[in-house]
């Protein structure tokens, strides 16, 4: 299964509750995390996601490391495969 399919099948609620129908895992995330997940489902790459976050949120500083850390969490929970870097379009 591709990471795109897996991400598309995640159940995301507006409150930040995430359900993975493949593994039964549930997570909660904040508004920023939710925005990243939605962007990933749309197939956006890392730089486009950063642009979107800057548009939607009042953010300063380096978003790269925050996104790297978030992707690490997604890999750790099996939401994306171990080799996922989020750079694909």
């Amino acid at each position: 299964m591709s990471s795109a399919t897996h991400l598309k099948d995640l159940a995301l609620s507006d409150t930040g509750f995430v359900f993975d129908p493949y593994t039964g895992a549930t997570f909660t995330t904040n508004a920023t995390g939710l925005a990243i997940l939605q962007a990933l489902r749309e197939g956006l790459g890392r730089s486009a996601i950063i642009d979107r976050l800057r548009e939607r949120f009042d953010v300063h500083g380096d978003l790269e490391s925050d996104i790297t850390e978030f992707y690490q969490l997604l890999r750790q929970h099996g939401v994306v495969p171990p080799n996922f870097t989020g750079t694909e379009k």
Partner: peptide, 17 residues
Amino acid sequence: LMLTDKGKGWAGITVRD
């Protein structure tokens, strides 16, 4: 999602893989 001390499921969720 939740186990008893005997390891029996006390809560669970349907999945589809």
